[in-house]
């Protein structure tokens, strides 16, 4: 059945059955593959996207229940100034290893900085606690977010 979803500011027509998730629709139909399918259980955070401005799990969101919501994926934040600072800091700090977790981490970090422009280290850790990284040991990710926050200061 056809659904009309608002994704990155555009209305997109997609096909979905009762059990299809937003993640399936994004990746398999719209080829928006920044959001990753890690666990499909809500645990890893690799699929994190913004739904009505708040980070949520695309793998736990039924596509049919997303009609009427504003969905923003990492692709939709490409021209965002805060995201640009995060990307730069992640590259400079070496916060990306295999990169599988990175899109989800960036979405969570972006949401954190939009509510708290100058987070302490423990606030960064808490803000990213829904995103697992199997490679980095988190330290460089936390450093990168702190660096991006510093860059944003006038």
């Amino acid at each position: 059945m056809t659904l009309a979803l608002s994704i990155n500011g555009r209305i997109r027509q997609v096909q979905a059955g009762l059990s299809d998730t937003l993640l399936t629709v994004l990746r398999d139909q719209l080829l928006l593959t920044a959001a990753k399918r890690g666990c499909n259980q809500g645990v890893c955070g690799a699929c994190t996207v913004l739904i009505d401005g708040r980070p949520q799990r695309a793998c736990l969101s039924l596509a049919a229940n997303c009609e009427g919501a504003a969905i923003t994926t990492l692709e939709g934040l490409q021209r965002d100034a805060s995201m640009a600072r995060l990307q730069k800091a992640f590259a400079a700090t070496g916060a990306v290893q295999c990169g599988f977790c990175t899109p989800g981490v960036l979405v969570s970090a972006h949401a954190l900085l939009s509510h708290n422009a100058d987070p302490r280290t423990d606030e960064i850790r808490a803000g990213l606690s829904g995103n697992l990284c199997r490679c980095s040991g988190y330290r460089k990710i936390v450093d990168a977010v702190a660096e991006a926050a510093k860059e944003a200061k006038p």
Binding site: S19, Q41, G42, C59, L60
Partner: peptide, 13 residues
Amino acid sequence: LSGGATLVAMMNA
């Protein structure tokens, strides 16, 4: 269906 954080995870599995 409320938040889906349990029901959809169960459907996925």
